[in-house]
Simulated assay, not measured.
Amino acid sequence: MALRSRSAAWPFALIVTAAGLVGCAGAAPAPEDIAVAVYQPRTDVAAERIAITVENLRSEPLEITGARLESRGFAEPMTWPGERTATVPPGRAVDLRVPLVPPDCAADPPVTGTVVLTYRKGAHDVDARLPLPGGDDRLPALWRQGCLASRVAEVATIGTADFLWTPGVPEAVLVVDIVPTGREGTVRLLEAAGTTLLSPAQAGRAVPRAPLDIAVSASDPPSSLRVPMVPNRCDAHALAEDKVGTRIPLLVETEDGSTGRLVLAASDALRERMYGFFVDACAL
């Protein structure tokens, strides 16, 4: 948990004050001195978490004893894990990390969500339901990405298998394994895209996207895809601060015509190979 001053910027944040309060000890007035936000820091992308930010606008400490994020389109609430508390000093904010849950792809896409915050008031815990306003795309985007990945997984398991490079050679090869499920359906791999660290390459030069145009059927035999890769830009700071630079996105199209990004996560060993290539190719 990271405490922040009230003036700290919240990227991609939804900021609201409480609209209603129902306490364990009975109903209570709406707390106008608590604000909440939800966003996803880059550090939480690979960890598959989202942050609930709680800002204490009151003149006394706020003791939080529970929190969860509810949103239509997700199978269950996203709950702050464990039995723990967080004390937020006056004028400060805290981020509560909650694990993402699977999307409910049979439901309508989420428009917004509700933060249910439990905190101490006197001798009792009270629950405040804090609806988030519309206008932020984070929850809908997570729902779309999760449902796209589920539809792709019905056809094939697609994942990063290897990252091949030779010292002194400025181009590497990303190896992607494609293992069809043997069920039904097709998916088309349209393009490979780059990250903050790595880009697909054509004729040895970085390009934002490299066309693939590969159709995968659930009944196909296993296969592999090889994508030439080069550094996106040789920036030591980008490497030192990297959070998502080894997560290679593929643009895919499912059988129903939906398109989106399928992000290929790298294992710890492959991540180190990618970093090693970046350092060598950039002579850092």
Rank of each mutant, 00 (worst) to 15 (best):
R6P: 01
R6D: 11
S7Y: 08
S7V: 09
S7P: 03
S7C: 01
A8P: 03
A8Q: 07
A9G: 03
W10V: 13
W10N: 08
P11H: 05
P11C: 09
F12S: 15
F12I: 10
A13E: 10
A13D: 10
I15G: 11
A18M: 02
G20Q: 14
L21D: 05
L21H: 13
V22Y: 07
G23I: 07
C24H: 14
C24W: 12
A25Y: 02
A25W: 04
A27L: 12
A27M: 07
A27F: 06
A27Q: 11
A28S: 14
P29A: 14
P31R: 15
P31G: 07
E32H: 08
E32P: 00
E32F: 02
D33R: 14
I34A: 02
V36P: 06
V36Q: 13
A37I: 06
V38P: 05
Y39I: 10
Y39T: 15
Q40D: 06
P41S: 01
R42E: 10
T43R: 11
D44N: 14
D44M: 13
D44K: 12
V45W: 09
A46P: 02
A46K: 04
A46G: 01
A47Y: 00
A47F: 01
I50W: 08
A51M: 12
I52D: 13
I52N: 09
I52F: 04
T53H: 11
T53E: 14
T53D: 13
V54F: 03
V54L: 05
E55L: 06
N56P: 01
L57Y: 06
R58Q: 03
E60A: 10
P61Y: 03
P61V: 03
P61H: 07
P61L: 02
L62K: 03
L62H: 00
E63M: 08
I64A: 01
I64G: 01
T65N: 09
T65I: 06
T65S: 14
G66S: 09
R68A: 14
R68F: 14
R68S: 15
L69D: 06
L69A: 07
E70L: 11
S71Q: 11
S71Y: 04
R72F: 02
R72L: 14
G73R: 02
F74Y: 07
E76A: 10
P77E: 08
P77V: 06
W80P: 14
W80S: 12
E83T: 15
R84V: 00
R84A: 06
T85H: 05
T85C: 00
A86F: 00
A86G: 00
A86I: 01
T87R: 13
V88F: 02
P89Y: 04
P89L: 04
P89T: 06
P90L: 09
G91D: 07
G91K: 09
G91P: 04
R92Y: 12
R92Q: 15
R92W: 09
V94L: 12
D95R: 09
D95M: 06
L96Q: 09
R97E: 15
V98N: 11
P99H: 06
L100N: 12
L100S: 11
V101A: 01
P102R: 15
P103F: 03
P103V: 05
D104L: 01
D104A: 06
D104H: 03
D104I: 00
C105F: 00
